[in-house]
Nucleic acid binder design. Sequence first.
DNA 1: TCCTCTCCTTGCTT
DNA 2: AAAGCAAGGAGAG
Length: 299
Amino acid sequence: LTPDSSRRDAGTVRHVLPVSGPIDLDLTFTCGQSFRWTREGDAWRGIVGRADLLVSLADPGRLSVVVSGQDPGPEALVRYFRLDQDPRAHLEHAEELRALPGILPLFGLRLLEQDPWETLASFISSAASNIRKIGRSVEGMAERWGELIPGSPRRAFPAPARLASAGAARLRATGLGFRAPYLARSARAVAAGAISWDALRAAPYQEARAALTALPGVGPKIADCTLLFGLGRLEAYPVDRWIRRATLELWSRRRAKDADLSRWAERFGPGRGYLQQILFHLRRTQGPLPPLPRVKRIA
DNA sequence: TCCTCTCCTTGCTT
DNA sequence: AAAGCAAGGAGAG
């Protein structure tokens, strides 16, 4: 335990952790990277692993985390919130975007390093859906097949084998729709050991991406989301409808395809996943974006 | 091989 | 009320 960690009452622990760089909890939890966080007054409550967390800003630069259930410990919390990294360090190659009105406050958006399986399953559920509905699906799966979390009314996200044995029909009944068979089959594959998360963390980006797209219901976009949000691969840059719109508007590229946009984004460096998340949020909340001064054309 | 089109659930919005 | 839309992917042609 750090000097700032203390036991409050039975089964509850509080950690107070220093934060490097800006942090905006509202942005971080609503931007669509994670689906189990809800606002509770000035704090945010969410499920991480087998823990129920209540997160708030204790004072400037310090994060308070009250834990029920299985305590991840301060080190794991630092990793989950990337508290030791200033998000702005990942945006060094995106100088031209500082000119965009309203972008500076978005640097408080922090990419979370989440569980890879939960991330994969969540984003398989996300195809042609929306953030609220994805949240309901994820919560529904946890309610039905997740393990109990002591001290919390909610449950952990179910392991691959649990969803595999649930089967497509029951997943469909949980609101997964046409994505249910994809998720059931991918769960079976993961439960059978078809994917090694450690190998994906270490592999070259394109290889890791190819391994994921081999799963049913996983195309380039969902593979990139899994790499970015679940495997700490900040060079992943998921291209979805919003990023497509934003990129076409900012750089006036009307005929570019998704693969072109992925390649285009390489210019934003190894931390471009951060930029993707910021552009995603910017485009959704601000509508059409003004064209930037032209620099280079998409190949 | 690559492109384009359609279909696939569901629920909320217009 | 019908149509559009929502962090897409698979399959056909």
